[in-house]
Design a protein around this nucleic acid. Structure first.
Length: 526
RNA sequence: GGGGAGGUAGCUCAGCCGGUCAGAGCAGAGGACUCAUAAUCCUUCGGUCGUGGGUUCGAGCCCCACCCUCCCCA
């Protein structure tokens, strides 16, 4: 297969398992992908951002039964009441949302499996061993322990403590073992295929130890997609779920669309599932004769008090709670700024609160407020014409130019935290610039109208740049700022502003109406 | 048992291939200013860079051992 130039910047999140309601980790991954894709859209690229839900498997089936529903009803309800609203809550602009119970996924998955079968990558065998319903995973004999306490009398998994069930059934197997060398070559030739380095090391050492063929179907229950050549089997949920990345864009249903978007540019995943995406998934694609994705990017855990956040530890912070208090923009900003994407990161309510006030309210929001206010009182809200730019203005221009370049490079490197750090140099520069130039003093001096105008126009242009650069991260606040700057009549929609054009000076025309709008980030009294 | 990541100011973290690398933000202290969301700006306090060795003209950054945390594998 020859590499084809990408027509589309295609990013995916994992599809989320619908046995429960979303938690902050889901929101985190989805928001980071949203920030990256919004930035790429503002670069003028053709972008496709996919997220969705994984709805098959024994765990969902049982959860539904416990609640007296069919699995389809259960999934429908959770999608309706929890998962779709989450996207709204955290303000995600995904292009598509796939559910694995949709027809396109059924058809596409069957087509993919048939391809695997026709190419001889699949054989029938018998599996006898332990299965964890909780993790939807087969567990090797070495990892089976006797349960204690509540699990007395049961076998449990050494991996995650979940209860195991012994199963003996006829399964179809995928010849994963044949792809060891091809995978190692892939990692070798494409160092960025699995990032960051910690995940890459782990995956490589795992593959180097050798790969076993993978049981890829189940025959003891039927909540899944039927194997096309054998209706007694349904696809193993993990294998089937991975296929969403191709079925959503037309594999088996719309070949032109598929070829346009595949391969994916980045699969965003949590580090716990990096292996499925960096080992099994590329092997399956190779087996089916398809190109592999460009990158699997594994992010870290969110830690609260040094511990991985989870419901069972009762240290969880709910996404809607953060958004309810600080707003979706702050939620998005916080996770992008405070955590090095790819590493574990500590989060806390106190930290969110502190950064909200120090960085968003005092830093950015107040800047927008003071500029609009001064243009309002000194020029009746009508942007004046700037005079000669002095060194001070040139410094502001230079800061913006370098911030744009650095931020763009950071996004390219999947490092939103660095992009925000670069952009924030503009916020700090402008606040310092205003204090130094003291336009409120200049306003009182005779014959200094032009100088006053130059200062405020410079500040307004700086805000214009910030609105564009921060729009991928904080679309609501930036829309409000865009409105405050009266930019739309002359410049058009905020989302249509191009990154490459941000630093070009003097885009806001003389006479633009600047209005004071409600605070971008009002202080939150607690 | 093997392997990986990390242990840097009170807190959260940057520090690429060894030579302004001892940093940033927040918090603390002092000052300036008043356009602004009791906001802004400046100055300042603060660390023997996990421990002990070693290599080097020179080491958070390389090597060895050890301690602690997390993860993967067995």
């Amino acid at each position: 297969m020859k590499p084809v130039p990408d027509q589309t910047f295609y990013v995916t999140t994992p599809i989320y398992y619908v046995n429960d309601a979303p938690h902050i980790g889901h929101g985190y991954t989805t928001v980071m992908g949203d920030i990256i894709t919004r930035w790429h859209r503002q670069r003028g690229e053709d972008v496709w951002y996919l997220t969705g839900t994984d709805e098959h498997g024994l765990k969902v089936l049982r959860k539904a039964e416990q609640n007296g529903m069919t699995p389809q009803e259960w999934a429908d309800r959770l999608i309706e009441t929890e998962w779709m609203p989450l996207l709204e809550t955290i303000d995600v602009a995904n292009d598509d949302f796939i559910r694995t119970t949709e027809e396109r996924h059924l058809v596409g998955s069957k087509a993919f499996w048939q391809d695997l079968y026709d190419r001889g990558a699949v054989y029938k065998g018998e599996f006898s061993g332990w299965y964890s319903v909780g993790a939807e995973e087969f567990v090797g004999d070495d990892d089976v322990l006797d349960g204690e306490g509540e699990d007395e009398g049961f076998k449990v998994s050494a991996l995650d403590g979940s209860r195991l069930e012994h199963v003996t059934e006829e399964n179809y197997f995928f010849k994963l073992s044949e792809y060891q060398q091809a995978l190692l070559d892939l990692y070798e030739q494409n160092p960025d295929f699995i990032q960051p380095a910690s995940a890459r090391n782990e995956v490589i050492s795992f593959v180097q130890r050798g790969l076993k063929d993978l049981s890829m179907s189940r025959s003891t229950f039927d909540w899944g997609i039927q194997v096309p050549w054998d209706e007694k089997h349904v696809m193993y949920v993990w294998i089937e779920a991975l296929l969403n990345y191709v079925t959503a864009i037309g594999y088996g249903t719309d070949q032109d669309a598929f070829e346009k978007r595949w391969p994916a540019s980045i699969h965003l995943v949590g580090k716990d599932i990096a292996r499925f995406h960096a080992v099994i998934w590329p092997a399956m694609l190779m087996a089916a004769g398809q190109p592999v994705p460009h990158q699997v990017f594994a992010h870290g855990w969110l830690l609260v008090g040094g511990q991985k956040m989870s419901k069972s530890k009762a240290n969880g912070i709910r996404p809607d709670e953060i958004v309810g208090t600080f707003g979706s923009d702050a939620y998005r900003y916080y996770f992008a700024r405070a955590i090095t994407f790819g590493s574990d990161g500590s989060i806390s309510w106190e930290d969110i609160h502190a950064r909200y006030h120090a960085e968003l309210a005092n830093g950015f929001g107040n800047l927008a407020s003071r500029v609009a206010s001064m243009i309002g009182s000194y020029f009746d809200g009508s942007l004046p014409a700037a005079g000669e730019l002095t060194d001070a203005e040139q410094r502001v221009v230079g800061t913006i130019e370098s911030a744009v370049a650095d931020a763009d490079a950071a996004i390219e490197a999947v490092a939103p935290q660095d992009a925000l750090a670069a952009i924030w140099r503009v916020v700090d520069e402008l606040n310092g610039y205003l204090t130094e130039q003291a336009p409120w003093k200049v306003a009182k001096e005779e014959g200094q109208r032009e100088r006053l105008a130059t200062i405020l126009v410079t500040a307004a242009e700086g805000l214009r740049a910030l609105a564009v650069l921060l729009n991928p991260v904080m679309p609501k606040a930036c829309a409000s700022l865009w409105e405050s700057l009266g930019a739309e009549p002359a410049l058009g929609n905020l989302a249509d502003q191009r990154i490459a054009d941000v630093a070009r000076w003097g885009q806001l025309p003389e006479g633009t109406t600047i209005t004071k709008v409600p605070s971008l980030f009002p202080r939150i009294e607690t």
